[in-house]
Structures are given as C-alpha cells and as structure tokens.
C-alpha cells in the first residue's frame, strides 16, 4: 500500500519536475513546480514527518512559488526572451547532465543509497515535531544558527540591492 502511494507521488513529482524545465510558459512552469513541491510534501508524510511536510507546503508552496508567480506576472517574461540567455551553454549542460545521470545510475544500481536506520521508532516519531525542535536547539544548534545567519545576510543583501535601485 505504502509502496503504491510512493510510486504515485514519485511519478507525479518527476513528471512535474520535467514540466518545470520543459514547459514554455513561465506561469505553467511555476505551477508544475508547485505540484512537484506538493508531491515532495506527500513523500515527507510517507516518511513519518508531517512537520516537514506541513512546512514544505507552507514555505515552498504557500510562499516561494507565489513569489515566483508574482515576479513572473510583473516582469512579463515572454517565451522569446529566454533564448537570449542561453549563450552556447547547451553542449556543456549536456555533458554535465550525462555525467550526473551516469553517477546516479551507478549508485542506484549498486544499492549503496540506503542509509542506516536512525534510533527513532515509529512510536517515538508521533512526537516528530518535538524531536525535531529539541535536536535543532541542542545537537544541531550551531548549523542552525549558521543557516539563519546566512538567511539574514541574504535578507539584508536583498534590501540593500533594492535600495540601490531606488536611487
């Protein structure tokens, strides 16, 4: 049963992810990005992590893609505008992608992708949110702070850039 759901979500996620890069209309791309994020959230639920799922929907679907849409609508990116930005990147991109697919296939085929099981049983994971909170503020407090600091810098950077443009 779980496997069936996993397959459904995974297939939709991959199809929509392909849609993101292949659809011509930027708004359509943004929508398939949203669908992709939703599927990933569903996968999080299958992994017994409803908190992550909710946050995924909340941040990515509820805010980030909305911002994308906002930008796309305001900037009015036509189809024809994209061509100019590619600058002969195609051959390089092709090589990189082939290499990536090769590495992925290698690891998958050799079965070295499964991680060791953690020390949380399914019962303990009911309190998933608390565990996450505790870990973030005890064991992983340093990376957590670093990440938030990074975000803060990005925030200030964005404000500075916007201010400069105004003048």
């Amino acid at each position: 049963m779980e496997k069936l759901f996993f397959l459904i979500f995974a297939v939709i996620a991959i199809v929509s992810a392909i849609g993101v890069v292949s659809l011509r209309n930027p708004v359509h791309s943004a929508i398939s990005l949203m669908v992709c994020f939703l599927q990933v959230a569903a996968l999080f639920i299958l992994l017994r992590s409803p908190f992550l799922a909710a946050v995924q929907v909340f941040i990515y679907v509820g805010a980030v893609v909305v911002l994308f849409l906002f930008a796309v609508m305001v900037l009015d990116l036509g189809k024809e505008r994209f061509g100019g930005y590619l600058h002969h990147q195609r051959p390089i991109a092709l090589v990189v992608v082939i290499g990536f697919v090769f590495v992925m296939g290698f690891t998958i085929l050799h079965g070295s992708l499964d991680a060791p099981l953690g020390n949380y049983t399914e019962e303990a994971l009911v309190k998933n949110t608390e565990i996450m909170g505790k870990l973030l503020f005890t064991k992983y407090v340093f990376p957590f702070e670093v990440v938030s600091f990074l975000l803060l810098i990005a925030l200030i950077g964005a404000i500075v850039l916007a201010m400069k443009e105004k003048r």
Binding site: M34, P50, F51, A54, V57, V61, G62, V66
Partner: peptide, 18 residues
C-alpha cells in the same frame, strides 16, 4: 487530530491563493 494541525491549516489555507 493531526499533531501538526495548525501548521497544516495555515499551509493548506495558503494554497487557496493559487
């Protein structure tokens, strides 16, 4: 009774904007 109930509601309610 989800243990992330309020987050779920805020998240799903946010999708409505689409």
């Amino acid at each position: 009774d989800m243990n992330v109930g309020i987050l779920y509601i805020l998240a799903v309610g946010g999708i409505s904007v689409y």
